[in-house]
Each structure stands twice: as structure tokens, then as C-alpha cells.
Design a protein around this nucleic acid. Structure first.
Lengths: 342, 342
DNA sequence: TTGTAAGCGTTATCAG
DNA sequence: CTGATAACGCTTACAA
């Protein structure tokens, strides 16, 4: 078991016949410490096997160098890319990440927020669950001045920064691309309008149609779902049951698009000839499905990095979180065979 | 800003005219506290807006209720499933997760281990980077009696528990299945033998061939790579250059299998007729590629849960980590069209 | 450039 | 069942 006692700065101090204060300062490269003593301290620390005690430090300094992250699910391609980017950026600045998932449940999101609050994270990063209706559960953070950054699934407000892409514009471009390919009966497989990402994609889709004088019955051509595998399959069944079928489908994510395509292909529908397809996210599966899926590329990795950089620069006083309200990252339409009516 | 002062157990004590000790006990449902006072304490805590200070608590009790996780990469389907399972299980037991990635670099793995050590995690969960040659960097944990659990990419040793599947058996079954389909020239796309997962799959592949009196030139039929997209494509090019081609390919992961298939299909090779295919992991892409890929299903989610449960039960003294040396989870061969020579 | 001393908010120990 | 008191290991005024 743990035979050897923990070494503290006092042990180092005693060893060198100096004060603990000097050791504390020396260890964190305080400017007013003599170069020589600093070196001696570092050596003694190594020699004695010292490791700093973050609790004692946090208790005193009220800084934890820990950031909380709440995401709907960890295991999607997009989200794991975000987290990878976050971990990278945080690690570079000596911050650690406590990660939790809401599993798309508002209740669990609230519980997680409370845990993070109690764990006294220096900052919080959140992508909202599918149907959270407000952000009251983050009020304690706002009240205490703990920075909160929303990313991807955000909630418009003035207390925090949001990191997003221009979902409206991206969706507009996808829809316009389909129109340019000669499609006129374009269906949209969308998500819950409570979430900006899906609401904005719907808006972009609508506006593109409108700008090209295309009017469609939204009751038939706007299909809202959970955007998972089953939803894709169900959408396909819905389409197969339509008397007058769409000539294009634009799905709000790649998973839905791909599973819809698979089902339609089974039924003999030719893609893109009968129905052109476009998705969103540039998930790995979009490059595997045949024909390859036209989609919107948007780097989760960069979303993660930008979110962390924003919150850390706020914490170090470089920027004020209330001044930068929104960080918009670039996204690109990637045209592949699923939408090319040659 | 943070106007209101933090409430401490002393504030509660003063409020109720009792001692802080009693408050501390009452808050954590200590058995010797009167039911009534306990209720009063809980009420006062809520009323005053108390939140516990984990640092002060950790400082004193030397327990952090935090577990460290080091993985090669966050953003693979398998690993994000593992993390999802871990988060779920840890959260249930009031533990938090600090997650970091080694990015397949031994150096970074060492740095991460040190950080975790300094952060004084109660336990550590590790999946080794691609080419880490030893586990000396975890020695401080062993020495201090901090439990370490290895999962998936493990390192045989007596100081910790390992959570795995039977890679040997799974690979044996895959190979045998291909043999049963009439394949005789079976190629294996494997990974670095330093990692048990890949070494064991190679062993299983070899043994199955041997048991069926098939002898192949390993210089030609065993292709070791990093098992990523490029490696899959390169393997295909290698195969296309072979004078006598294999009639089956068994890849140590689905990514490699799928990208190899794509390239071969482009070159006119028919799958499974010319070359049958099998992968490993049951990644989502295995269900998208045409023909669907035969693979080994093995639940990352369960690996994550089992790892956490093991380490927590050790921490709570239920089990001793040295007694359970290995936890083997089930895996299943999933046969799909890519290997069925009808 | 270094030191003294107080205190961060809890829990362990001992006592009643 | 409850309380007094002393740590836990660090940081930070203030002093020298």
C-alpha cells in the first residue's frame, strides 16, 4: 500500500532551509524568486518525489483548472471530434476536462449542471439536449460569473458565448445546389425546431425555395424526426407511400440521409436519378454509401478548439465573454454523386 | 460578478445553533445523527444555498471521487462507445471522469499519466497508445496502491485488472468462417504486434489456418499497418499487385477492410466472389458498405461499464484488484454478405 | 528577494 | 447522539 508519506512544500522547505512560501513561489516560477533558489527548489522537489496537491491549491486560490463539458451523447462522430479538439486545446493550456452526457434528457442535463457547479469547474461548455426548453439550470453559473460557452446546439442569450456554423446559410446552399440540379420537389428531413441547428437549417431550406419561386406543401415535404437510423428508414417508408414523390431529399444529418437512401434503394429507387440526396455533417458513412453523399463539412475538431480557446481567453482576462457573443466557424458544401444529375 | 459569499457548513451550524461537525455528518447521512437534526440541516442547507466544497473535502479525506481515463483517441466509434459506457457507470456511482488522449504518442501518454497522478485521481483507466513499449509510467500508481485498469489495448501484468474480449478466439472464428466458405488463400491485415489486440488476432488467424492444414507465405499474406483509411487503400494496391491474389481478406478492423474493399471494387474485383472480406469491430460503416461487411461485434459500451464497475468495486473494498486479473467480455461473429460465397 | 502567519472549508480524533 | 479542536497542504497579505 501507500507506504511513503506525501511530500509537501514544507518538506522541501526544511530540506533546503528556506520558507515554504519561497518554495511555493519557486515552484510556480514567480518572478521575484532568485534564479538560483528556484533551481534548487526544482531539484529538491524532484529528489524528494514531490507532487503538488491540487486540492489544497484550489481550496486556497479558488481556481480548479478544470472545465466541465456537457454533451447530449459522447458517441457520435461529430461529438467525439468536438471532444478530441477540446481535449487538445485544454491540455495545451494546462486545463483538464470533466465530461458528462445528458443522453438527450433535460433532467440529466440539469443534474450534470449541478454536479459541475459543485465540482467548481472554472468554466462550462454545453451542447443542449434534444428538447431542453430553457437554460435556467445554468443560472447559478451566470450569477457567479462562471463563464458558460454553448456550442453547436446553442441557446440565444446574452450571458454567454456561442460557437456555431451558419446553419441557415449552409442549408440554403444545399437547397440551392439541389435546385440547380433541376430538382423542384425537394423534401427536408429536419430535427426539433427547439434546437437552433435544426431550426436554422429549416429556415435556409425554406428561403432557398422561396427565392426560386418554389412552393411546396410543408405538411408533406417537411418531415421532422429524431434524425437517427430508424428515422431515416421511416422517412423512406413515408416517401415510398407518397403518391407524388420528391425528386430530392435534404436531410439535416448524414445518418438520416444514409438510412433513408438504403431503404429507398432496396425499393428500387435510383439515386440520384429518381431522387437526389444531400445530408449534413460529413460523417464517415457519407463517403461509404453508394452513391457517395453530398453533405456539409464542418469540423467538430475546430468547434471544440474554438470553444475552449474562447472560454480560456475569457478566464485569463484576455477577452470578456459578454463582448464576443457568437463565434461562427466556416462550413463547406461537399458535392458528391448522390446529388449530381449529370 | 460573484457578489454573494459562499455558504459553508459553519454558516449552517450558526444558523441552527449546532456544531459544524454535526452539520458535516448530517449532510452525508452519517448513521449516528438524529433523524430530526438531519432534516433540519438539509433544510437549512437548501435555504442558505449551500454547496459542498469538494476541495476541502478531498484535502482532508484524500478521496477525490474522480477517475482518470487515458485513451489513444477520443474520436473513433469504438472508443466513444467505451467512454459513453464509462460515463454512465461512473455517474451512477457519483464518480467523475477526467478524460485525456495520448494521440497514439507514448510521450503524451506519459505526460497524461503524470497529470492524472498529480490530479490525484482515485483510479486510472488506460487503453495503450499504438506503440508504447512498457508501462513504467504507471509505476507511481502501482506503488501508491492506486488502482489501474487496462481495457482493450492492455499490457499483461499482475498489478492491475484488464478488460478485454477473447481476440484470439474471435479471430479464429472469423478465419474458420472464411475457410468454411471455401477460401484457402486468406490474407490478414493486422496491426502492431506490441498491442495484445492485434497480436492475438494474428495468433487466432494463424491457428485456424494451421488447424485446417493451410500453409501460406506470411511474408505475402500477413500485412501489418496502422489500420487507418490510408492503410486500407494501400493494402488494396498491394493486393492488386500480387501475381496470385488472395481469395479472402480478414482485416483487424472495419475501417481498413472497408477502404480496402472500396479500392478493390474500383479496380473491378468482385466481393465476395473474387475476394471475400471480414473486418472487426462492427463499426457503423460495416453496415453501409456494399456488400455489408462480415465482422466481429463487441460492445465498447460494455467494455466501458465493466472497466468502471471493476475499478469502483475495488475502490469500495468489495474486491481486490489483484485477485481479478482479467475480465473477458463476449464478442460475436456477425456474418454478412461480404463473406458469403453462396 | 525572502519570511511570518493566517486562513481556505472540510473531516478525523478524541471526548463527552 | 453531539461537540471542540486540530489538521489537510497550499496561497497571500503584510512585513522585513
Amino acid at each position: 500500500m501507500a507506504e511513503d508519506k506525501e511530500i509537501t512544500i514544507y518538506d522541501i522547505a526544511r530540506h533546503l532551509n528556506i520558507s515554504a512560501t519561497t518554495v511555493s513561489r519557486g515552484l510556480k516560477d514567480h518572478p521575484t524568486i532568485n534564479k538560483n533558489t528556484r533551481k534548487k527548489i526544482a531539484e529538491a522537489a524532484r529528489f524528494l518525489g514531490y507532487r503538488s496537491n491540487t486540492f489544497a491549491s484550489s481550496l486556497r486560490s479558488k481556481k480548479t483548472y478544470t472545465l466541465g463539458v456537457i454533451v447530449p451523447r459522447l458517441n457520435s462522430y461529430f461529438m467525439s471530434s468536438v471532444l478530441a479538439g477540446m481535449e487538445k486545446a485544454a491540455n495545451q493550456e494546462q486545463y483538464n476536462l470533466i465530461i458528462s452526457q445528458s443522453l438527450e434528457s433535460t433532467e440529466k442535463e440539469i443534474a450534470n449542471a449541478n454536479t459541475m457547479f459543485n465540482k467548481r469547474v472554472d468554466g462550462l461548455l454545453v451542447s443542449l439536449s434534444y428538447d431542453s426548453r430553457d437554460i435556467d439550470h445554468f443560472a447559478p453559473f451566470f450569477k457567479k460569473g462562471i463563464p458558460v460557452v454553448f456550442f453547436d446546439r446553442i441557446y440565444p442569450n446574452n450571458e454567454s458565448t456561442s460557437v456555431v456554423i451558419d446553419n441557415y446559410k449552409a442549408a440554403y446552399e444545399v437547397t440551392k445546389h439541389l435546385i440547380d440540379q433541376g430538382c423542384r420537389r425537394i423534401m427536408h428531413l429536419g430535427g426539433n425546431r427547439l434546437r437552433n441547428v435544426y431550426a436554422d437549417r429549416i429556415r435556409g431550406y425554406r428561403q432557398a425555395l422561396k427565392d426560386h419561386q418554389i412552393s411546396l406543401d410543408e405538411k408533406k415535404f417537411l418531415y421532422i424526426s429524431k434524425l437517427n437510423e430508424e428515422a431515416g428508414t421511416q422517412a423512406a417508408e413515408y416517401i415510398l407511400g407518397m403518391s407524388k414523390k420528391p425528386d430530392a431529399v435534404f436531410a439535416a444529418n448524414d445518418t438520416t440521409a444514409v438510412y433513408c437512401m438504403i431503404k429507398l434503394k432496396e425499393a428500387g429507387i435510383r439515386i440520384p436519378d429518381d431522387i437526389a440526396f444531400a445530408g449534413f455533417n460529413n460523417d464517415p458513412i457519407s463517403k461509404i454509401i453508394e452513391p457517395n453523399l453530398t453533405t456539409v463539412n464542418y469540423s467538430g475538431y475546430e468547434v471544440g478548439q474554438a470553444s475552449i480557446n474562447s472560454i480560456i481567453s475569457h478566464l485569463s482576462g484576455t477577452t470578456n465573454i459578454r463582448s464576443t457573443n457568437m463565434i461562427v466557424l466556416r462550413s463547406d458544401l461537399i458535392i458528391r454523386d448522390s446529388s449530381l444529375k449529370k
